[in-house]
Amino acid sequence: MLAVKRSISQLGYRFGCKILPLLPSWPGEVAFIKLLNTRLSEELHDGLFDFLDNQVLEVNVTDLQIRLRVSKRDAAFVRALADVEADSTISANFADFLAIASGREDPDTLFFQRRLCLGGQTEIGLTVKNRLDAFDRSRIPQWALRWLEVIAAELAVITPKYRE
């Protein structure tokens, strides 16, 4: 059973690595930003993300070659224009992003190990990291959290830790 699950994840992961880089822009970006706006509405309302006003943050998922470009305008996250250079970049592979999101790994630990990289204005990247650490996980539906943990644990095994 375990072996079957693992080969399915491996297949999915390899498929993602092949297909996603071929797309002009990641179709999930709109959905992702929408999700951020719903989940972080309290923080947005409290002005906790105002530091992103008119700034472009790029989240770079290295192995899948996905670049999420996020900015903020009028109390909402928005997609950044394609031709604007990012003010700050956070890069890691998909497994490590999921490990952070699921609470498996500490971002500073990954940073020390060179698995998480910050570029551009460090302060923006650091503040984003701290704001996301402060996110109250009890506001994520239990089933979603469980899935996140399962996938993160799977990927942690099948993804090579270091860029070769």
């Binding site: 498996r104 790994e105 500490d106 500073d108 630990t109 701290n130 650490d133």
Partner: peptide, 10 residues
């Protein structure tokens, strides 16, 4: 204090 909940837990 600058570290994540994951660090604190472990």
């Amino acid at each position: 204090r600058q570290r994540s909940p994951a660090y604190v837990s472990q």
